[in-house]
Design a protein around this nucleic acid. Structure first.
Length: 890
RNA sequence: GCGAGGGUAGCCAAGCCAGGAAAAGGCGGCGGACUCAAGAUCCGCUCCCGUAGGGGUCCAUGCGUUCAAAUCGCAUCCCUCGCACCA
C-alpha cells in the first residue's frame, strides 16, 4: 500500500487498524461502568453464531457502532454490548453430520465470529459478553420460567406434534422431511411417514397480554410503522360479541361474530369439522362422520362450499326460528369459537355456501343513506352486501344502524362483547437437545413438579446420537427423585424454544455476571429501556413480541419497572449485490474477511453507511467500495501533508473567515444528521468540508488555526464511521489522546447561514450563466454590487404589508424620494406574492466578499464586491436584496 | 380482499411531516485545469431554447385548495411488503 511518490501519502489499513484496536482495548474505551447513570443503550440484535459473519451483520453493527461512537463523543455513557444467541438447530445438525459435540462446535463458531468482529474494530463492551448456551445464562431461563409458573403464566396445553411410529418418538418440525405422498412428511432418520399426535406441551400464556401488546403499539412512535402493523396483524384483534345458540342435540353452542346486527338474516348454522358438538353428532351420523374424516385428512382440499347437513337444528335466539345445522370445512376450528350462524345475504362465504346448498338468503341490512349505493341498488340473491347499513326485516330493530343494533342485540340476546385475537399462547416445548432444559420433573404420583430453585440449573447431559430427542435417551440424567414425594420420577426431556433466550438478553447485559438473579433490578430500571435497537425485519413479530411480553411479565412479577423494552427500533435494509440478496448458496456474496484484508474495515463500514439510509436496501458495488477507500486515503493524505509542514501557512486573508463559517456549519449539519441516523447525509458534509479545505490550501496560505480546526472537525465527524482512520489522522495531527475519548465538535450554526449559503450559490451560478450565455472567453474583472439600503428597507416593509402594497410603500417619505426606481421596485414586490427573508445589506456585502475568492479561483478574474450604497449606479440599479448586481468585463 | 409503505431527471437517491428557487448528493456521460502519461485532486456541464443573470416545460396520471404545490386534499393507475377461508 505504501507509495513511493512523496506527494501522495497513503496509509495501510492492514497495519493501522489492529494498532488502534489494541489502543482502544488498552484504554478500555468501550467499557461502561456499573455505576453509570442512565447511559445510552445502543443494541444490535445478537447473532446466532454461525461462525461466519456476513455483510448483513457488518451493516447491522456498523450502524450501532457509529451511533454508539457518536453518543460517546457527545459525552454520554454508552452501553453497546454483544452476545451470542447460541442455542439452536445448526449446532445439532453439525453434531449429527460430523460427529462433533454441539457445545464444542458452538464455542468454536463463537470464537471465529468474535475474531471477525474484532477484525472490524467494532466497539463492543466485551466485558458484558453473554452466551445463552452457558449454564450461567440459561439457568435464568429456567428460573424465570418457574417464576412465570408461580405467577400462573405457564400452562400445559395440547398441541399437535410429529410422531414417528417406527422410532416411537416425537420429532421437532425440522426433523420431518417433506414428501410428495405423505402430507405430514417423513422421518429424517428412517423415512417412515409421520403421524400427528396431540400431546401436552408447555405454554406461556401470551394471550393474557394480547390487548396490551396490541394497544400500546399506537404509542410506540419510535418504531417503524410497518413493524407495528405486522404486530397488529400478528395479534389480530377482533372486536365482536358472542351469543349462545341452543341446538336440537341439547347442546348450547357459543358463537363469535363481529356482525351481530345481521342475526335476523341467519338461515343456517355451521360447525367446524373439529368442533366437539360435530364430533358428538358424528357418533350417530355416518355422513357427518365421513365428512369430518375427509376434512381431517391432510392433503385433501375440500371445496370452499363443501359441507354436510347434520339433521339437527339450532334456534336463532333473536327470531326463535329453527335453522339447519351443517358441518362445513370453511368454518375454521381456531377462529372465533369454531361455530357460527351464517348470513348469506351479508357474508361472501356464507353466500357461496347457501347457493351451493340451496339455502334461503334473507336480506336484513340495506345501505345507509350516506352510503354510495341506493338501498334498492343491491341484490343479495346475486352477491352478499357486506357493509354496515340500516336494519330491515329485523322486526322491532328495523331502521337501526348496524353499530347500534349490535349493542342492542348483545343486551337483548344475553350475549357479551368479546375481543378475539389470533395471537396464540406461546408453545415453548421443543423436542431437541441443544436448548434450555425445561426445569420440571414428571412424577407418577404428584404429576409435574417444578425443580426447586436451589437445584438450578438443570444442565444438559452429554450429547448422544439418537433417532429422537437425545435427552430422552439420557437415561441416567432422566431418572431423578420427585422433589415433592421423594419417589422415583423422570425429568422433562423437552427444551425451551430459543426465543425464550432472546426475550430478555438485553437485561442480562446490565449485570452479566450476577450470580443470584437474572439481572440487577435497580440498574435495569435505570438503564432500560434500550434507547436504540437495530436489527432485521425478520424479527418483526416473534422476537419483538416475545421480548415485549417478557418485559411486561417482569414488571408484573416485580422484577422490573418498565413495560416496553425498546424505545426506538430501526430495521436495517438488506445488502444486495447485482439487485439480488447476497446468498452463500448462489455464491453471490462479498465476504468480510477478504474484503478487510484488501481494503480495511473502515472502507467497508464507510461504504455501507454512505451508500444508503440504514433502513433501505442497497446494492454492494465495487465502485462504491473503491470510492469509500479513496476518500479515506484522501483525508489521510491531506492531514499528513499538512502535518508534515508541506502546506505553507499564512493569515488566509478573506478566505479564512469563509472556511471558518463552513466548518461550523458542517459540524452543525452533520450532528443533526447523526441524531437521525442519516449517516449518508452527515458524510456528505464531511466530504464537502474536505474538498473545501483542499481548495483553501490550493488558493492561498491558510491560517493554521482555521485549517487545523477544519481538519479536526473532519476527523471527528468521520470517527463514528471510520474510527481507525480517524484515530490515525487524529494522531498525525499531533494529538496524543484518542479520538474515541475526544469531544464532539461544538455546533453553533452561524446565524443566517442557510440564507448566506444560498446567496453565494446563486451569485456564483449567475456569474457562470452570464459568462456562458454572453460567450465571454476570458473574464478580467467581475464586479458585484449589493443593492442600495432603501431596497432592503422597502422589502422589509413589504413583508409586513397587506392590501395595496405599492400605495402604502410609496406613501413612505423615504421611498417616495427615490422616485421612479422606488415605484418600479414596489410594483415588483407587490407582484411577488411571497417575499423571502434576506440578510441585512451589510451582512450581504460581507458574505459576498468572503466568498469572492471562489469566483477568483474559478474564473481567474479580479473580483470586486461593493457594499450597499457603494456600488456604481448602473450596477446598483440591477441589484435587489438577495440578488446583487453583476458586471463582467473581458 | 384488508392493511402499511412507495412511484422524483439516463440510473441510484434527497426533499414531502411544518407549501415559497429546474428540485441536494452519488453513479454514469461530456468538457476543462494540473500531469510526459496514468492515477489522485480541482473546476464546470448533463430537461428544452437563449451572445448579461432570460424564457418554456417539469416530480406516476387527472382534478382540486392556494397569491404560490414535488410538498396539502380527492380520484385513478402501477410497484413493494405484511396479513388473509379471521366469522
Amino acid at each position: 500500500m505504501s507509495d513511493s511518490a512523496p506527494e501522495t501519502r497513503r496509509f495501510d489499513p492492514g497495519e493501522v487498524e489492529p494498532r488502534w484496536q489494541e489502543a482502544w482495548d488498552t484504554a478500555d474505551v468501550f467499557h461502561i461502568e456499573d455505576d453509570a447513570e442512565d447511559p445510552s443503550y445502543v443494541l444490535a440484535m445478537f447473532p446466532y453464531p454461525s461462525g461466519e459473519m456476513h455483510m448483513g451483520h457488518v451493516r447491522n453493527y456498523a450502524i450501532t457502532d457509529a451511533y454508539a461512537w457518536y453518543r460517546r463523543m457527545q459525552g454520554d455513557a454508552v452501553l453497546h454490548p454483544m452476545g451470542w444467541d447460541s442455542f439452536g438447530l445448526p449446532a445439532e445438525n453439525a453434531a449429527n453430520e460430523r460427529d462433533v459435540d454441539p457445545r464444542e462446535w458452538t464455542m468454536d463458531c463463537i470464537d471465529r465470529m468474535k475474531s471477525q468482529m474484532e477484525l472490524m474494530g467494532l466497539g463492543f463492551d466485551w466485558d458484558r459478553e453473554v452466551t445463552t448456551c452457558e449454564p450461567e445464562y440459561f439457568q435464568w431461563n429456567q428460573w424465570l420460567f418457574l417464576q412465570c409458573y408461580e405467577a400462573g403464566l405457564v400452562e400445559r396445553q395440547a398441541a399437535e406434534l410429529n410422531w414417528c411410529p417406527d422410532c416411537e418418538t416425537v420429532l421437532a418440525d425440522e426433523n420431518v422431511n417433506p414428501h410428495p405422498d405423505h402430507a405430514n412428511g417423513i422421518c429424517w432418520r428412517c423415512d417412515s411417514p409421520i403421524d400427528k399426535r396431540d400431546l401436552d406441551q408447555w405454554f406461556f400464556t401470551t394471550t393474557e397480554y394480547a390487548d396490551e401488546l396490541y394497544d400500546t403499539l399506537d404509542e410506540m412512535d419510535g418504531w417503524p410503522e410497518n413493524v407495528r402493523e405486522m404486530q397488529r396483524n400478528w395479534i389480530g384483534k377482533q372486536e365482536g360479541a358472542s351469543v349462545g345458540f341452543d341446538l336440537t342435540t341439547g347442546d348450547s353452542v357459543d358463537i363469535f361474530t363481529t356482525r351481530l346486527d345481521t342475526v335476523y338474516g341467519a338461515t343456517f348454522f355451521a360447525l367446524s369439522p373439529g368442533h366437539e358438538v360435530a364430533a358428538e353428532i358424528a357418533a350417530e351420523n355416518d355422513a357427518v362422520a365421513e365428512y369430518i374424516e375427509r376434512a381431517d385428512r391432510e392433503g385433501e382440499d375440500l371445496p370452499q362450499t363443501s359441507g354436510v347437513f347434520t339433521g339437527e337444528y339450532a334456534e336463532n335466539p333473536a327470531t326463535g326460528e329453527q335453522i339447519p345445522v351443517y358441518v362445513a370445512d370453511y368454518v375454521l376450528e381456531d377462529i372465533g369459537t369454531g361455530a357460527l350462524y351464517a348470513v348469506p345475504a351479508h357474508d361472501d362465504r356464507d353466500h357461496a355456501f347457501a347457493q351451493t346448498h340451496d339455502i334461503d338468503i334473507r336480506q336484513v341490512v340495506e345501505p345507509a343513506p350516506e352510503a354510495d349505493r341506493e338501498p334498492g341498488g343491491i341484490d343479495t340473491e346475486e352477491a352478499a352486501y357486506t357493509e354496515d347499513g340500516l336494519l330491515v326485516n329485523s322486526g322491532e330493530y328495523d331502521g337501526l344502524a348496524s353499530a347500534e343494533a349490535r349493542e342492542r342485540f348483545v343486551a337483548d340476546l344475553d350475549g357479551e362483547f368479546r375481543t378475539a385475537h389470533s395471537l396464540r399462547d406461546w408453545c415453548i416445548s421443543r423436542q431437541r437437545y441443544w436448548g434450555t432444559p425445561i426445569p420440571f420433573v414428571d412424577c407418577p404420583d404428584c404429576g409435574y413438579v417444578p425443580v426447586p430453585d436451589e437445584e438450578l440449573p438443570v444442565e444438559l447431559p452429554e450429547f448422544v446420537q439418537t433417532t429422537g430427542n437425545p435427552l430422552d435417551a439420557a437415561e441416567e440424567w432422566k431418572q431423578v427423585t420427585c422433589p415433592d414425594c421423594g419417589g422415583p420420577a423422570e425429568r422433562e426431556t423437552d427444551t425451551m424454544d430459543t426465543f425464550v433466550d432472546s426475550s430478555w438478553y438485553f437485561l442480562r447485559f446490565v449485570s452479566p455476571d450476577l450470580p443470584d438473579a437474572p439481572f440487577d433490578t435497580g440498574r435495569a430500571n435505570n438503564w432500560m429501556p434500550v434507547d436504540q435497537y437495530v436489527g432485521g425485519i425478520e424479527h418483526a413479530t416473534m422476537h419483538l413480541i416475545y421480548s415485549r411480553f417478557f418485559t411486561k411479565v417482569l414488571d408484573d412479577i416485580d422484577l422490573l419497572d418498565h413495560r416496553e423494552p425498546f424505545r426506538n427500533l430501526l430495521t436495517q435494509g438488506m445488502v444486495r449485490k447485482g439487485g439480488e440478496a447476497m446468498s452463500s448458496s448462489t455464491g453471490n456474496v462479498v465476504s468480510p474477511r477478504p474484503f478487510v484484508d484488501s481494503y480495511g474495515a473502515d472502507t467497508g463500514r464507510l461504504f455501507m453507511l454512505n451508500a444508503a439510509q440504514p433502513e433501505k436496501d442497497f446494492d454492494w458495488t465495487d465502485e462504491g467500495a473503491q470510492s469509500a477507500h479513496d476518500f479515506l486515503q484522501n483525508v489521510y493524505g491531506l492531514a499528513a501533508t499538512y502535518a508534515e509542514g508541506e502546506i505553507d501557512t499564512g493569515d488566509g486573508g478573506v478566505v479564512d473567515e469563509y472556511v471558518a463559517h463552513e466548518t461550523s456549519a458542517a459540524a452543525a449539519t452533520a450532528t443533526e444528521q447523526f441524531e437521525q441516523f442519516r449517516f449518508n447525509h452527515a458524510l456528505q458534509e464531511v466530504r464537502d468540508l474536505v474538498a473545501l479545505l483542499r481548495r483553501y490550501a490550493d488558493h492561498t496560505d491558510p491560517r493554521p488555526e482555521t485549517f487545523e480546526r477544519g481538519l479536526e472537525t473532519v476527523t471527528k465527524l468521520l470517527a463514528p464511521v471510520a474510527p481507525h482512520t480517524a484515530e490515525e489522522v487524529w494522531h498525525r495531527l499531533g494529538n496524543d489522546d484518542l479520538i474515541a475519548t475526544a469531544e464532539w465538535p461544538s455546533v453553533d450554526t452561524p446565524e443566517g447561514y442557510d440564507t448566506a449559503r444560498l446567496l453565494v450559490e446563486n451569485t456564483r451560478e449567475d456569474v457562470r450563466d452570464i459568462i456562458d450565455v454572453a460567450g465571454i472567453e476570458e473574464p478580467e474583472q467581475i464586479e458585484i454590487g449589493v443593492a442600495p439600503d432603501w431596497k432592503y428597507y422597502a422589502r422589509r416593509r413589504a413583508r409586513e404589508l397587506d392590501g395595496n402594497v405599492v400605495g402604502q410603500l410609496m406613501g413612505d417619505d423615504r421611498l417616495r424620494s427615490r422616485g421612479e426606481d422606488a415605484a418600479d421596485y414596489a410594483k415588483e414586490l407587490a407582484a411577488a406574492g411571497h417575499i423571502d427573508e434576506q440578510l441585512r445589506p451589510e451582512r450581504e456585502g460581507e458574505v459576498l466578499r468572503r466568498a469572492s475568492w471562489l469566483l477568483e479561483r474559478e474564473f481567474g478574474a479580479d473580483v470586486t464586491v461593493y457594499g450597499p450604497d457603494e456600488a456604481p449606479a448602473n450596477l446598483a440599479a440591477k441589484a435587489t436584496p438577495g440578488r446583487p448586481g453583476i458586471r463582467i468585463e473581458e
